[in-house]
Design a protein around this nucleic acid. Sequence first.
DNA 1: GATGAATGAGAGTTCATTCAT
DNA 2: GATGAATGAACTCTCATTCAT
Lengths: 192, 192, 192, 192
Amino acid sequence: MQTERQKEIIEAALVLINDKGIQGFTIKNLANKIGITEPAIYRHFTNKIQILISILEYFKTSTKDILKKELNNNDTSIEKIGHLFTNHFIRFSTTPSLVSVIFSEEVFRSEPILIEKITEVIERNDNILIKIICDGQANGEIRNDIEAKYLSIVIMGSLRLFVKKWQFAGNSFNLRAEGEKLIESIKLIIEK
Amino acid sequence: MQTERQKEIIEAALVLINDKGIQGFTIKNLANKIGITEPAIYRHFTNKIQILISILEYFKTSTKDILKKELNNNDTSIEKIGHLFTNHFIRFSTTPSLVSVIFSEEVFRSEPILIEKITEVIERNDNILIKIICDGQANGEIRNDIEAKYLSIVIMGSLRLFVKKWQFAGNSFNLRAEGEKLIESIKLIIEK
Amino acid sequence: MQTERQKEIIEAALVLINDKGIQGFTIKNLANKIGITEPAIYRHFTNKIQILISILEYFKTSTKDILKKELNNNDTSIEKIGHLFTNHFIRFSTTPSLVSVIFSEEVFRSEPILIEKITEVIERNDNILIKIICDGQANGEIRNDIEAKYLSIVIMGSLRLFVKKWQFAGNSFNLRAEGEKLIESIKLIIEK
Amino acid sequence: MQTERQKEIIEAALVLINDKGIQGFTIKNLANKIGITEPAIYRHFTNKIQILISILEYFKTSTKDILKKELNNNDTSIEKIGHLFTNHFIRFSTTPSLVSVIFSEEVFRSEPILIEKITEVIERNDNILIKIICDGQANGEIRNDIEAKYLSIVIMGSLRLFVKKWQFAGNSFNLRAEGEKLIESIKLIIEK
DNA sequence: GATGAATGAGAGTTCATTCAT
DNA sequence: GATGAATGAACTCTCATTCAT
């Protein structure tokens, strides 16, 4: 459970990281953004690392929801992967600052505990995607001349780079609309 | 154009960024790594940003060589893209610290001049890759049911993620050997 | 004169000072130890200094009792000094945290009002001890080749150092039992 | 070996601790006292604890000189102890700030490494004093109805309290002159 | 070419204390 | 009586950078 202030701090942190990168994520900037003093932050988080951990936790939960929803419905595997993209696009369009977190492992290199946490998130997501692909290969939807592991790299790599480009372009194009074409391309690529 | 010391500084900076991320790239760490004092660094670079610029310059040149070589030989487009991967793998295996630079745009977020520089590098490379793909589509080697632009995202996204995973795994597997399978997968994906 | 909570706070403060020294005596630590919040402390004491003053007051009263009892009974002077030691040993064994207060004037260096207060306590005790010694010298019990003032330093200095060593040893030996030998030594030293 | 600046810092730290206690010993106060900025301190000591360690080291060396000198000359044991007092008095008169260090173990309670260090200093000095006393008892100079261990407490306790009183009185009396009488008293007390 | 010494700015964090509830 | 939230001041320490030598 998180208090209102904690949520506010996490969101401000997200925006800060998105706008100025890790270097811009300081307690002072954070406090200024929210309109309180620096020590006040420490009423809500014991230290800076805890804020980053909460961000990852936040991301982990929201990603899990997306992934699990796909795993357990009756769509075809191809459709599932399409939804995977769509859901990510929706999520990032709504909260562009999330992009910085998930695609910038760099942010979390400073502390072993953070590295551990993000590795865990990434691995879990990879496994779910690979499971979807394997299912698709098993029932003849997805091509099986390429190992699921490599297909997952192609899929996630494309998704990541596409979103990264959107971020680099200052969110200047419509992620979802433009993304549709990427989804179609991915589908053509993986189908049997 | 560069003195021995300057090269030494750039290489140490690369290693530092690779090992500990941006946060670990301080003038103090840099000086310690080389075995000189901090002010000595300023004999060779006017400031920290210039070091980062030189790193990008260094990367730009070495990438240009790889790309240009491919563009102007007589291989098929598919082969060119295969070589593109292979050459990157060789380069990263030789100098693993380069990975952090090219795939962690985060590092260069602090200064407008750096953002400009890296955007330039990325765009130039993109254009060259798209050119190769277009050629391949024109002469019937590469599938043309997917726009070159999207194919380039799939290709570069896969390459980036694969190398990133290698970095995250602490360079623990053989990038080139494992990478062969990725190259084969990419070839299967893009061929007509 | 003191509420239950006030006593509780004073005792917790004593333990804190004893365990971690002055640096460990913070309002936060104090509140944690008692299990209330920091502002709650201020319901019972107007500020931190008042807590220290209360500690001194507390110590002053309990010391006065010991000393006065000795002054006004019919024991010989030597016996009185023996009891002085014994009573201190009992008191410190019961409440080890008191040691830090009385022998660490350091704690009270921060504020003039505290310095004044502790000086007063020390002087008063000194005077009572000197009175006992003088009486003993007058009636031939105690050697008079040494001025009472210096004998008092020898006596109090020995007592203080002995207790300090006990504290430094983490209260690991039996203060009272071991202390018996010190009392015997002091008696041998001062008797005529 | 210590640089001039390091010595200057140690001496300023000593004065600071003496004047205002531990609480007054801050990097800021230290820097102000010397007339440099706070970061400059860190050129000379890696951190605050290192300064305290150096103070102890400094004290340890100067005490060792005093003690060793006594141990290895041809004076009687009683004379040795007399010199011990005199030398301490001279040392403290010259550098009054030293008093705070050696008699305020409190200062060093904050860090385990400091506790260890000061315990070591104290124990070593104790052992040397006990050795002197035992020698004196063996050759019939010093009374042997009291164990050396307790005599050492009486001697060191007296010395400490006397010096402490001098400090508390704001160094207002002549330590050495007044101290002569204490030395005489101690001699009377311990001689056979 | 390099060093020792220093600096202004700012980092994360803790302190005693206040105030509305 | 107590709490949650906040604050100004101060803390230790690190940063990139400068300058005289």
